[in-house]
Design a protein around this nucleic acid. Sequence first.
DNA 1: CAGAATCCTTTACGATACTG
DNA 2: CAGTATCGTAAAGGATTCTG
Lengths: 132, 132
Amino acid sequence: MDRTVGGSSGTIRYVTSDQPQLADCRARLAFDLLANTWNAVLIWALRHGPCRPGELRGRIGGISPKVLTETLRRLEFNGLVTRRAYVESPPRVEYELTPLGATLLGPIDAFGAWAFEHGDEVMAAQEEHEAP
Amino acid sequence: MDRTVGGSSGTIRYVTSDQPQLADCRARLAFDLLANTWNAVLIWALRHGPCRPGELRGRIGGISPKVLTETLRRLEFNGLVTRRAYVESPPRVEYELTPLGATLLGPIDAFGAWAFEHGDEVMAAQEEHEAP
DNA sequence: CAGAATCCTTTACGATACTG
DNA sequence: CAGTATCGTAAAGGATTCTG
Protein backbone atom coordinates (compact mmCIF):
# COMPACT_ATOMS: atom_id res chain seq x y z
CA MET A 1 0.00 0.00 0.00
CA ASP A 2 1.06 3.54 -0.47
CA ARG A 3 -0.15 5.18 2.71
CA THR A 4 -0.68 8.51 1.15
CA VAL A 5 -0.98 11.13 3.82
CA GLY A 6 -0.67 14.16 1.64
CA GLY A 7 -3.69 15.85 0.23
CA SER A 8 -6.61 17.42 1.99
CA SER A 9 -5.25 18.91 5.13
CA GLY A 10 -2.62 16.26 5.37
CA THR A 11 0.56 17.95 4.41
CA ILE A 12 0.11 21.65 4.03
CA ARG A 13 1.41 22.69 0.68
CA TYR A 14 2.32 26.31 0.53
CA VAL A 15 1.64 27.77 -2.84
CA THR A 16 4.88 29.36 -3.80
CA SER A 17 4.08 32.38 -5.88
CA ASP A 18 6.49 35.19 -6.65
CA GLN A 19 4.88 37.67 -4.32
CA PRO A 20 4.57 36.71 -0.70
CA GLN A 21 0.94 37.13 0.30
CA LEU A 22 -1.87 35.27 1.88
CA ALA A 23 -0.93 32.18 -0.06
CA ASP A 24 2.08 31.36 2.03
CA CYS A 25 0.81 33.11 5.11
CA ARG A 26 0.40 31.23 8.34
CA ALA A 27 -3.33 31.66 8.23
CA ARG A 28 -3.48 29.27 5.32
CA LEU A 29 -2.23 26.55 7.57
CA ALA A 30 -5.24 26.82 9.82
CA PHE A 31 -7.62 27.15 6.91
CA ASP A 32 -6.18 24.06 5.30
CA LEU A 33 -6.70 22.14 8.49
CA LEU A 34 -10.39 22.78 8.15
CA ALA A 35 -10.60 22.51 4.40
CA ASN A 36 -12.37 19.20 4.36
CA THR A 37 -15.60 17.76 5.55
CA TRP A 38 -14.58 15.87 8.62
CA ASN A 39 -11.49 17.28 10.30
CA ALA A 40 -13.28 19.92 12.29
CA VAL A 41 -16.23 17.68 12.99
CA LEU A 42 -14.00 15.02 14.48
CA ILE A 43 -12.07 17.43 16.64
CA TRP A 44 -15.38 18.73 17.83
CA ALA A 45 -16.61 15.24 18.56
CA LEU A 46 -13.52 14.55 20.64
CA ARG A 47 -13.84 17.64 22.78
CA HIS A 48 -15.08 15.83 25.85
CA GLY A 49 -12.22 13.38 26.07
CA PRO A 50 -10.97 10.07 24.68
CA CYS A 51 -13.35 8.23 22.45
CA ARG A 52 -13.52 4.97 20.57
CA PRO A 53 -14.11 4.88 16.82
CA GLY A 54 -17.46 3.21 17.14
CA GLU A 55 -18.62 5.83 19.56
CA LEU A 56 -17.35 8.55 17.25
CA ARG A 57 -19.30 7.11 14.37
CA GLY A 58 -22.39 7.07 16.51
CA ARG A 59 -21.94 10.64 17.57
CA ILE A 60 -21.24 11.96 14.15
CA GLY A 61 -23.38 9.93 11.84
CA GLY A 62 -22.93 9.70 8.10
CA ILE A 63 -19.24 8.93 8.10
CA SER A 64 -18.01 5.66 6.68
CA PRO A 65 -15.46 3.59 8.60
CA LYS A 66 -12.90 4.11 5.92
CA VAL A 67 -13.18 7.88 5.94
CA LEU A 68 -13.24 7.91 9.71
CA THR A 69 -9.91 6.12 9.85
CA GLU A 70 -8.42 8.28 7.14
CA THR A 71 -9.45 11.46 8.87
CA LEU A 72 -8.22 10.36 12.26
CA ARG A 73 -4.91 9.42 10.69
CA ARG A 74 -4.65 12.85 9.18
CA LEU A 75 -5.33 14.49 12.49
CA GLU A 76 -2.73 12.27 14.08
CA PHE A 77 -0.28 13.19 11.36
CA ASN A 78 -0.82 16.84 12.13
CA GLY A 79 -0.28 16.30 15.82
CA LEU A 80 -3.86 17.05 16.79
CA VAL A 81 -4.90 13.61 17.93
CA THR A 82 -3.29 10.58 19.52
CA ARG A 83 -4.22 7.00 18.94
CA ARG A 84 -3.99 4.48 21.74
CA ALA A 85 -4.50 0.82 21.03
CA TYR A 86 -5.16 -1.61 23.84
CA VAL A 87 -4.01 -5.13 23.20
CA GLU A 88 -7.24 -6.93 23.84
CA SER A 89 -9.78 -9.01 22.15
CA PRO A 90 -12.04 -7.69 20.86
CA PRO A 91 -9.71 -4.86 19.99
CA ARG A 92 -10.11 -1.55 21.68
CA VAL A 93 -8.78 1.75 20.43
CA GLU A 94 -9.15 5.23 21.75
CA TYR A 95 -8.49 8.52 20.11
CA GLU A 96 -7.84 11.62 22.10
CA LEU A 97 -7.06 15.23 21.41
CA THR A 98 -3.49 16.24 22.04
CA PRO A 99 -2.89 19.47 23.95
CA LEU A 100 -2.27 21.04 20.59
CA GLY A 101 -5.50 19.69 19.21
CA ALA A 102 -7.35 20.98 22.23
CA THR A 103 -6.20 24.49 21.46
CA LEU A 104 -8.28 24.27 18.31
CA LEU A 105 -11.46 23.87 20.30
CA GLY A 106 -11.67 27.58 20.96
CA PRO A 107 -11.72 28.64 17.32
CA ILE A 108 -13.97 25.74 16.43
CA ASP A 109 -16.37 26.70 19.16
CA ALA A 110 -16.45 30.17 17.68
CA PHE A 111 -17.77 28.66 14.50
CA GLY A 112 -20.28 26.58 16.33
CA ALA A 113 -21.56 29.69 18.02
CA TRP A 114 -21.62 31.51 14.72
CA ALA A 115 -23.68 28.77 13.14
CA PHE A 116 -26.08 28.84 16.01
CA GLU A 117 -26.52 32.55 15.57
CA HIS A 118 -26.41 32.98 11.82
CA GLY A 119 -27.27 29.61 10.39
CA ASP A 120 -30.78 30.71 9.53
CA GLU A 121 -29.50 33.59 7.45
CA VAL A 122 -27.29 31.33 5.38
CA MET A 123 -30.10 28.94 4.74
CA ALA A 124 -32.40 31.81 3.86
CA ALA A 125 -29.87 33.13 1.38
CA GLN A 126 -29.56 29.73 -0.20
CA GLU A 127 -33.27 29.33 -0.66
CA GLU A 128 -33.52 32.82 -2.02
CA HIS A 129 -30.96 32.02 -4.69
CA GLU A 130 -32.65 28.76 -5.50
CA ALA A 131 -36.11 30.22 -5.93
CA PRO A 132 -35.75 33.77 -7.22
CA MET B 1 -24.41 25.63 -19.01
CA ASP B 2 -25.61 23.93 -15.94
CA ARG B 3 -24.62 26.37 -13.23
CA THR B 4 -24.12 23.81 -10.61
CA VAL B 5 -24.01 25.47 -7.26
CA GLY B 6 -24.32 22.43 -5.09
CA GLY B 7 -21.28 20.66 -3.80
CA SER B 8 -18.50 21.98 -1.68
CA SER B 9 -20.05 24.46 0.65
CA GLY B 10 -22.64 25.40 -1.88
CA THR B 11 -25.81 23.83 -0.67
CA ILE B 12 -25.45 22.33 2.74
CA ARG B 13 -26.60 18.78 2.68
CA TYR B 14 -27.61 17.45 6.04
CA VAL B 15 -26.79 13.83 6.40
CA THR B 16 -30.02 12.30 7.48
CA SER B 17 -29.23 9.43 9.76
CA ASP B 18 -31.60 7.75 12.14
CA GLN B 19 -30.17 9.29 15.26
CA PRO B 20 -30.02 13.04 15.42
CA GLN B 21 -26.45 13.98 16.27
CA LEU B 22 -23.66 16.15 15.11
CA ALA B 23 -24.43 15.25 11.51
CA ASP B 24 -27.51 17.38 11.27
CA CYS B 25 -26.43 19.83 13.91
CA ARG B 26 -26.12 23.49 13.09
CA ALA B 27 -22.40 23.40 13.65
CA ARG B 28 -22.08 21.34 10.50
CA LEU B 29 -23.34 24.28 8.54
CA ALA B 30 -20.43 26.44 9.61
CA PHE B 31 -17.95 23.65 9.11
CA ASP B 32 -19.23 23.03 5.63
CA LEU B 33 -18.83 26.67 4.80
CA LEU B 34 -15.14 26.28 5.43
CA ALA B 35 -14.76 22.80 4.06
CA ASN B 36 -12.86 23.81 0.99
CA THR B 37 -9.59 25.44 0.14
CA TRP B 38 -10.66 28.93 -0.76
CA ASN B 39 -13.87 30.00 0.95
CA ALA B 40 -12.27 31.15 4.15
CA VAL B 41 -9.26 32.58 2.37
CA LEU B 42 -11.47 34.76 0.20
CA ILE B 43 -13.56 36.02 3.07
CA TRP B 44 -10.36 36.84 4.83
CA ALA B 45 -9.02 38.62 1.77
CA LEU B 46 -12.17 40.74 1.60
CA ARG B 47 -12.05 41.84 5.21
CA HIS B 48 -10.87 45.37 4.48
CA GLY B 49 -13.64 46.24 2.06
CA PRO B 50 -14.73 45.89 -1.55
CA CYS B 51 -12.19 44.39 -3.89
CA ARG B 52 -11.84 43.58 -7.56
CA PRO B 53 -11.10 40.05 -8.73
CA GLY B 54 -7.71 40.97 -10.10
CA GLU B 55 -6.73 42.51 -6.83
CA LEU B 56 -7.99 39.46 -4.99
CA ARG B 57 -5.89 37.20 -7.15
CA GLY B 58 -2.90 39.35 -6.42
CA ARG B 59 -3.51 39.26 -2.69
CA ILE B 60 -4.11 35.58 -2.50
CA GLY B 61 -1.81 34.08 -5.05
CA GLY B 62 -2.07 30.57 -6.42
CA ILE B 63 -5.74 30.67 -7.32
CA SER B 64 -6.81 30.29 -10.92
CA PRO B 65 -9.36 32.68 -12.39
CA LYS B 66 -11.84 29.90 -12.81
CA VAL B 67 -11.67 28.76 -9.22
CA LEU B 68 -11.77 32.34 -8.03
CA THR B 69 -15.04 32.95 -9.85
CA GLU B 70 -16.51 29.68 -8.70
CA THR B 71 -15.67 30.37 -5.10
CA LEU B 72 -17.00 33.90 -5.16
CA ARG B 73 -20.21 32.61 -6.67
CA ARG B 74 -20.52 30.10 -3.90
CA LEU B 75 -20.03 32.80 -1.30
CA GLU B 76 -22.61 34.92 -3.05
CA PHE B 77 -24.98 31.98 -3.11
CA ASN B 78 -24.59 31.62 0.62
CA GLY B 79 -25.26 35.28 1.21
CA LEU B 80 -21.76 36.07 2.39
CA VAL B 81 -20.64 38.22 -0.50
CA THR B 82 -22.20 40.59 -2.99
CA ARG B 83 -21.12 41.15 -6.54
CA ARG B 84 -21.38 44.58 -8.09
CA ALA B 85 -20.72 45.01 -11.78
CA TYR B 86 -20.09 48.45 -13.20
CA VAL B 87 -21.06 48.88 -16.82
CA GLU B 88 -17.80 50.14 -18.17
CA SER B 89 -15.10 49.22 -20.56
CA PRO B 90 -12.87 47.67 -19.58
CA PRO B 91 -15.27 45.91 -17.26
CA ARG B 92 -15.06 46.52 -13.57
CA VAL B 93 -16.44 44.29 -10.88
CA GLU B 94 -16.26 44.51 -7.14
CA TYR B 95 -16.95 41.92 -4.53
CA GLU B 96 -17.80 42.88 -1.00
CA LEU B 97 -18.68 41.11 2.20
CA THR B 98 -22.29 41.29 3.19
CA PRO B 99 -23.10 42.12 6.81
CA LEU B 100 -23.63 38.41 7.27
CA GLY B 101 -20.29 37.62 5.69
CA ALA B 102 -18.62 40.13 7.93
CA THR B 103 -19.86 38.29 10.99
CA LEU B 104 -17.66 35.42 9.91
CA LEU B 105 -14.56 37.51 10.28
CA GLY B 106 -14.50 37.01 14.01
CA PRO B 107 -14.32 33.22 13.91
CA ILE B 108 -11.95 33.33 10.98
CA ASP B 109 -9.69 35.71 12.82
CA ALA B 110 -9.67 33.25 15.66
CA PHE B 111 -8.15 30.72 13.31
CA GLY B 112 -5.66 33.18 12.00
CA ALA B 113 -4.55 33.88 15.52
CA TRP B 114 -4.40 30.20 16.24
CA ALA B 115 -2.21 29.59 13.23
CA PHE B 116 0.07 32.39 14.28
CA GLU B 117 0.42 30.84 17.67
CA HIS B 118 0.46 27.13 16.94
CA GLY B 119 1.47 26.84 13.31
CA ASP B 120 4.99 25.79 14.24
CA GLU B 121 3.73 22.89 16.28
CA VAL B 122 1.67 21.56 13.41
CA MET B 123 4.56 21.78 11.04
CA ALA B 124 6.82 20.14 13.58
CA ALA B 125 4.37 17.28 13.98
CA GLN B 126 4.20 16.82 10.25
CA GLU B 127 7.94 16.65 9.85
CA GLU B 128 8.18 14.28 12.74
CA HIS B 129 5.74 11.90 11.07
CA GLU B 130 7.53 12.21 7.77
CA ALA B 131 10.98 11.45 9.10
CA PRO B 132 10.60 9.09 12.05
C1' DC C 1 -10.07 42.98 -16.99
C1' DA C 2 -13.82 39.77 -15.89
C1' DG C 3 -15.00 35.38 -16.72
C1' DA C 4 -16.79 31.70 -19.55
C1' DA C 5 -15.57 27.36 -21.99
C1' DT C 6 -12.63 23.15 -22.22
C1' DC C 7 -9.87 19.73 -20.80
C1' DC C 8 -7.52 17.20 -17.39
C1' DT C 9 -5.75 15.17 -12.94
C1' DT C 10 -6.36 14.34 -8.37
C1' DT C 11 -8.75 12.89 -4.49
C1' DA C 12 -12.37 13.12 -1.15
C1' DC C 13 -15.89 10.49 0.11
C1' DG C 14 -19.16 6.67 0.04
C1' DA C 15 -20.71 1.53 -0.11
C1' DT C 16 -19.46 -2.84 0.71
C1' DA C 17 -17.06 -6.88 1.96
C1' DC C 18 -13.46 -8.99 4.39
C1' DT C 19 -9.74 -9.99 8.16
C1' DG C 20 -7.82 -10.53 12.92
C1' DC D 1 -14.88 -3.91 17.01
C1' DA D 2 -11.06 -1.81 14.51
C1' DG D 3 -9.36 -1.46 10.29
C1' DT D 4 -8.11 -2.62 5.52
C1' DA D 5 -9.05 -3.53 0.69
C1' DT D 6 -11.68 -2.48 -3.51
C1' DC D 7 -14.40 -0.25 -6.37
C1' DG D 8 -16.95 3.68 -7.98
C1' DT D 9 -18.66 8.48 -8.36
C1' DA D 10 -18.52 13.11 -7.93
C1' DA D 11 -16.22 17.14 -7.77
C1' DA D 12 -12.48 20.25 -6.60
C1' DG D 13 -9.00 22.54 -8.41
C1' DG D 14 -5.50 23.69 -11.98
C1' DA D 15 -3.93 25.17 -16.82
C1' DT D 16 -5.15 27.23 -20.87
C1' DT D 17 -7.66 29.60 -24.35
C1' DC D 18 -11.05 32.76 -25.94
C1' DT D 19 -14.42 36.70 -25.83
C1' DG D 20 -16.83 41.14 -24.87
